[in-house]
């Protein structure tokens, strides 16, 4: 059965949604989203004049980035924002060309490796980042280049869907996390920040569906 190109994006989106519901298979993708979230905090700290002290990842998908200096506002904002950007970037670059997808995968490997070298300080985080490293390595090594594109696109969507849903966990009334930090800094309520992240992620999914169509065309 041949599926029309305009439905390819939504088929991949549905595949990503199903993967996220699977008990064990979904776990590494949650770690991936968590890694992108924390590394975004860290990279923003570096870009705004600070530094990363360490990055911690936990098996339940939670994470912690310890930084020194930099702009607290942008560092807080770019946790969920950065994960949305990473998801969109993975999907977009994978949609453009096979070689671009390959180069991006290699860059991702480099980022994971440097994270282990410079910012991972505990065994649990080392274990999780090594699994993510192996996942990206396996994608490059064992996939034919055509499939690599599709797998990277689905990976990008997995990160994006996680980024869409993750801010909603902040609405637990406990005033913790990035939303509460931004609320403290700006006096704008946490719910507004959650709404902004959620809207940006929805908009990104919509834009990528258009990009996917254009790439097919």
């Amino acid at each position: 059965m041949l599926i029309k190109p305009k439905y390819h994006f939504w088929l991949m989106f549905l595949t990503a949604l199903i993967i996220l519901q699977l008990p064990f298979i979904s776990i590494p993708f949650k770690w991936l989203e968590s890694y992108f979230h924390e590394i975004s905090h860290g990279l923003t700290a570096i870009l705004t004049g600070g530094s990363i002290v360490k990055i911690q990842l936990f098996p339940n998908g939670a994470g912690l980035c310890t930084t020194r200096g930099g702009s607290a506002f942008f560092i807080s904002l770019m946790g969920y924002g950065g994960a949305i950007l990473w998801g969109s970037l993975i999907f977009y670059l994978a949609s453009t060309h096979r070689k671009v997808a390959l180069v991006f995968s290699v860059l991702l490997l480099g980022l994971l490796a440097s994270s282990i070298l410079f910012w991972v300080r505990d065994l649990l985080t080392l274990f999780i980042v090594l699994i993510l490293l192996a996942l990206v390595l396996a994608k490059i090594k064992y996939s034919a280049h055509n499939y690599l594109q599709k797998i990277l696109q689905v990976t990008g969507l997995l990160v994006l869907i996680n980024s869409l849903m993750s801010p909603l966990y902040l609405l637990d009334g406990q005033a913790r996390g990035d939303g509460a930090a931004l609320a403290d800094l700006t006096f704008i309520p946490e719910v507004i920040w959650v709404a902004i992240w959620f809207s940006v992620a929805l908009f990104a999914i919509y834009r990528l569906s258009k990009v996917s169509l254009r790439a097919k065309g």
Binding site: E38, H41, C65, R68, G70, G79, R176
Partner: peptide
């Protein structure tokens, strides 16, 4: 101050 002057982002 340097040791304690770090920020945590979850």
């Amino acid at each position: 101050q340097q040791i304690f002057g770090v920020d945590l982002f979850a």
